[in-house]
């Protein structure tokens, strides 16, 4: 079993937003929800960088710590998933998440948000793998099909990496050494407690 992670090499990301679109399409994500988004830091200035961000599938996930109904669980691949049948849409996980991953179908108040939705690392939910019920609630389960998340798989510049943490860290490290610069493994320190040292 692997320890799945995402790593966005911001020095390669061209802010094409294809990952955002592919994700929405792959999982039929409802209107208003973006499981993945691209944030541009220092937009329009020299040295600007774009980072594609979704749920980082944290170690000791803060969302799981605050959920009043304990509906989060971590898979053998260290992917953080949740059970929409149990979720009461309280919104606590949004306030706990450092990456703004949890989102709700309605931008309503405490009572009216609906079931939380977030990136599943393309691995569905608690329903039977690749079942229709799973697809409707969580989207495709590519991991069960032996594939990696669609966002990283189709990234044209291979900026967005998905896979075992050690392997993608090694790829990133090699890149930084070869080209001589790197703006860092965005979010790693916050999500996993350590970063990629070059």
């Amino acid at each position: 079993m692997a320890r799945m992670k995402f790593l966005c090499d911001a020095d390669r990301c061209i802010e094409c937003n294809a990952c955002v679109t592919a994700c929405k399409n792959e999982h039929e994500v409802p209107w208003g929800i973006n499981r993945r988004r691209v944030v541009t830091i220092n937009d329009g200035l020299p040295g600007e960088r774009s980072v594609s961000m979704a749920c980082m599938h944290c170690t000791d996930a803060p969302c799981a710590a605050v959920c009043p109904v304990n509906c989060f669980y971590t898979t053998d691949d260290a992917v953080v998933l949740h059970n929409k049948d149990t979720c009461i849409g309280c919104g606590y996980c949004f306030f706990a998440c450092p990456f703004g991953a949890p989102q709700y179908p309605q931008v309503g108040n405490f009572g009216t948000r609906g079931k939380m939705d977030k990136c599943t690392y393309c691995s569905g939910g608690p329903e039977a793998d690749m079942s229709q019920a799973e697809y409707v609630k969580y989207g495709a389960n590519r991991l069960a099909e032996g594939k990696l998340p669609i966002c990283a798989e189709m990234c044209s510049t291979k900026a967005l990496l998905a896979g075992d943490g050690d392997i993608i860290a090694e790829i990133y490290r090699e890149r930084v050494v070869t080209r001589g610069y790197g703006s860092g493994a965005w979010g790693w320190r916050t999500a996993y407690g350590d970063t990629v040292t070059v």
Binding site: A65, P98, T190
Partner: peptide
């Protein structure tokens, strides 16, 4: 993009 403070509240 990154809100490390949220972990404190969590």
């Amino acid at each position: 993009l990154i809100k490390p403070g949220n972990k404190g509240w969590a």
